[in-house]
Amino acid sequence: MWEKKPILLMLMATAAILVGTTITMILPFVWVNTEADRIEGVTPYTPLEQEGRDIYMREGCNNCHTQTVRPLVAEVLRYGDYSKSGEFVYDRPFLWGSKRTGPDLARLGGKYPDAWHYQHMETPRSIFPKTNMPAYGWLSNNALKPDKVRRKMQVLGFPHSEAQIAELATKNEMDAIIAYMQKLGSDIPWRQTGRTEIVGELRNPFSGADQTTLAGWRPLYQSNCSACHGTNMEGGIGPELVGDYYDEETLFRIIYDGIAAGGMPAYANLGSERVWQLVNLIKYDQSTGD
């Protein structure tokens, strides 16, 4: 019957296609991005951040970087709190991506200081020597176009002031994309709520380690710390590391918890054993700067 009637066949095919479409694509609009999804504190992008987001899209950053943390142990440890639907209500379109050639960026905001980003975008290999991240220093040469951004903000319906638009004239594309990256995932206070409390007395398990043992831990320093504090602890984006400056326990807490205000990331995910190794290295390794 339908094999001899093309119009009938097409109507039947349309119906078949629309069942799954209606249930899994149309129906979810009833629940997603509604009041139930809403999260206090999630705000629209500022003009500078939105322009940064558009540059992120233009350069196709989503081809290598995802922006969604799954509720899986290793993933939450590596990137931070898992992503929630309400965090993305101002994303048109979403930028969750599908491939992690580079790391996930959903919780990047506030992880590193701005200076880290400027250096990393300019010469990624100065921070990660073997990375395949292309250099994006050329973004600094491109000025922003305030009138275009105003129009975008109007179309999106995001709040903006003329002062914010005027300020764009003094910024370049690098400033914009870094402002965007610093906003990612930081609308909810997950760093505070997800922080691991250290309880009980802190005791250095490697007290009195000899110089050979210390030398064995240097690769740990090189892969986690040297980009900011220098190969020989002489300082850079972060300060010079002077062994006598802090006692063991304070140093441990700084590395483990980070200093949010100072741009020092938390390294709790290294585990306390390796954090203690770093403490000993910084305090007692005689081959380095101090």
């Binding site: 479409t21 899994t24 694509m25 979810p28 609009f29 997603v32 991005n33 999804d37 558009d54 639907s85 965090e87 993305f88 209500v89 101002y90 994303d91 048109r92 379109p93 979403f94 969750w96 275009k148 129009r151 975008k152 179309v155 999106l156």
Partner: peptide, 23 residues
Amino acid sequence: VPVSAFKSYSIFAGTNSANVQWW
């Protein structure tokens, strides 16, 4: 929604946008 000759913003946002895109 077009903003200019070669720039537009999807009418879908966030999680909806993801679901429509992968449909």
